[in-house]
Design a protein around this nucleic acid. Structure first.
Lengths: 337, 337
DNA sequence: TCCGATCATGTAATCGTTTCCACGAGACGC
DNA sequence: GCGTCTCGTGGAAACGATTACATGATCGGA
């Protein structure tokens, strides 16, 4: 591997001058600059970022720890993060926690060891010691999508509450009265928020959310299936199931299909998170869409601010209801009022 | 940040001994080992992997450059790669090329600059100079899914040819005679292979593949839509469209739906790559499934071999046909024969 | 003409590790 | 009792960059 020393030798200059020329330092003569250019070209020199990082204490890298790469929501988030980061001159290292606290721990630790300049994390829950440590440590941290209550770290997320209220209104207007929810892990903020908002929405219509209509999922497909089966086995099954993420909705679809039931004729289904596939399922799924890419971009900018030393603020972006056909046809279809 | 020097001081030992203790070197007394342990614990010491890498020329990291993170096929591949790599003690840095040669270049260059120990890449086509350079350079490289002909690098991929032949047989047996294909970029090996196999399959049945039945896509949804629209505008539209990846199939579904046509009644659809959503589309899509996760694992092991100095061999795993309902009901349904 | 400022460059310290080499202390064989 | 080995340890040189400081040349102004 050719090093800066080789370039210096070939250009007949000291490594210091070569380094300065390479970094665009002002006091380098045109002559030297050209010689360095020629030398790097002919030798095919590429600076060793490892050595550079050791000296400068900067790696030009940010870490992103997400809960589940297989979830299209997080994939889209990751893509937006990488895009924005690239424009700001950062690389991104992604860690997939797979909804497991131990893996989240593993990745956060690994990223800190790598001396990333900043960390973006969607904490599975508060049970990852490393995430807590990172949040209070010297490395800038921003939470995205989910956060840990009581931890003083900027959060970039979307607020699904009004959208969930809209959803409940929608369901109610379609005549549904027995509404069930497949919740995410109670330990995650998004998991709790969605159940709370759902319950509040029901209360507006004078409806309760009985305990047996609350399924405890883990944001993965299999749990959606299990909860749905439990719902369908109830003496009085719900009219609607609201899955609080897209993978659990997929599991619910599976379970419903396995019973030979049809959506929305036999049971209605709604989901949180919109993804392209939801327009193509049978039937297309009514969902709550988050401004996912925007979340990613804003989070990166907040982190970059933090790295630059300026304080970053939290951001909350609104989610909105997307009505499709999985909850039944709108009642006002025939009545134009 | 606490360094090995602080640990040495606190333990009353030299940095050399501390380093040896930390790395499990045999000739360290139990006494020293314990003192080091105590010191690291109390100081919360974490080794600086940047410095370590500079000295050892190893980063414990492999790079993975994939064509499109939004494609569930690659997401699953990435997940399997990370999993296997983690078990072998490596971290993975993912670069998303978004089917663009310039981005592939960018990521390959960045990863090499980072001095990764090895590189896994699914080359978009042969037009990325850095990929070619990397393939012939000192850093171990393994191609996964796609490869560059003529470049001497181990390849881990699946062979879709027999599965495509099965698919054509299946379509033929359902009575379809006008078969169209949405191809991937001709520059990608997978793009070419799938068209060639399709054409060969048709030839077996005495059918031709007219030029107007070959759409040139780019493995992304929008191109699937565009090609499908072109097909539907033909004076004699095809009976079946075979999309050579899942995103183009999604685009095709869009285009078909936009015309108010139904699958498979009006036109049949098949795809390459199986993903969970395909069981839930309307109708469920007949596809060719690759052993995606297995590909990722094998590729990582091949790369690890290469890094360890042993020669790695190429691997080809078979893909297989998964029949669902998007191409019509099996003819023998009513005739039990 | 001389002095101080400016400019281009070089020398060397530094970042935090690993690892080669040297060294002293025991153990052991003869 | 004396070389020879082994073992545990420490000193110091890398690794490849950046950068504070020193130096000599050039230039402008008084």
């Amino acid at each position: 591997m050719v090093s800066i020393k080789d370039v210096a030798e070939s250009a007949g200059l000291s490594v210091a001058t070569v380094s300065r020329a390479l970094n665009g330092h002002p006091s380098v003569s045109d002559d030297a600059r050209e010689r360095v250019q020629a030398a790097t070209d002919s030798l095919g020199y590429r600076p060793n970022v490892v050595a550079r990082s050791l000296r400068t204490h900067r790696t030009g890298t940010i870490g992103l720890v997400i809960s589940d790469v297989l979830n299209p929501y997080f994939t889209e988030l990751a893509r937006a993060v990488e895009e924005e980061a690239r424009e700001l001159g950062y690389s991104v290292i992604i860690g997939n926690a797979d909804e497991r606290a131990d893996l989240e721990d593993h990745h956060v630790r690994g990223l800190l060891d790598r001396r990333i300049d900043g960390l973006l994390v969607s904490p599975a829950d508060g049970r990852s010691p490393m995430t807590l440590e990172a949040a209070t440590g010297p490395t800038p941290v921003v939470f995205v999508d989910r956060w840990i209550p009581g931890v003083d770290v900027p959060v970039v997320r979307s607020d699904g509450r009004t959208a969930i209220a809209d959803l409940v209104d929608h369901l109610h207007s379609l005549g549904h009265r027995r509404l069930a929810i497949i919740a995410g892990p109670a330990a995650t903020t998004t998991g709790r928020e969605r159940v709370d908002a759902f319950r509040a929405g029901l209360a507006v219509h004078g409806l309760a959310l009985p305990e047996e209509y609350v399924g405890s999922g883990d944001f993965q497909a299999e749990s959606g299936r299990a909860c749905t089966e439990r719902f369908l086995n109830l003496p009085e099954p719900p009219d609607v199931i609201f899955a609080t993420d897209n993978l659990m909705a997929l599991g619910a679809l599976d379970a419903i299909g396995a019973r030979g039931l049809r959506v929305p004729r036999d049971i209605a289904l709604a989901a949180f998170d919109d993804i392209p596939w939801f327009s193509h399922t049978d039937p297309p799924i009514t969902t709550i869409a988050q401004p996912t890419a925007e979340l990613g971009r804003v989070a990166v900018r907040a982190l970059a601010d933090l790295i630059a030393g300026s304080p970053a603020s939290s951001t909350v972006l609104p989610a909105h209801l997307v009505v499709r056909r999985s909850c039944g046809e709108p009642a006002q279809q025939g009545s134009h009022t």
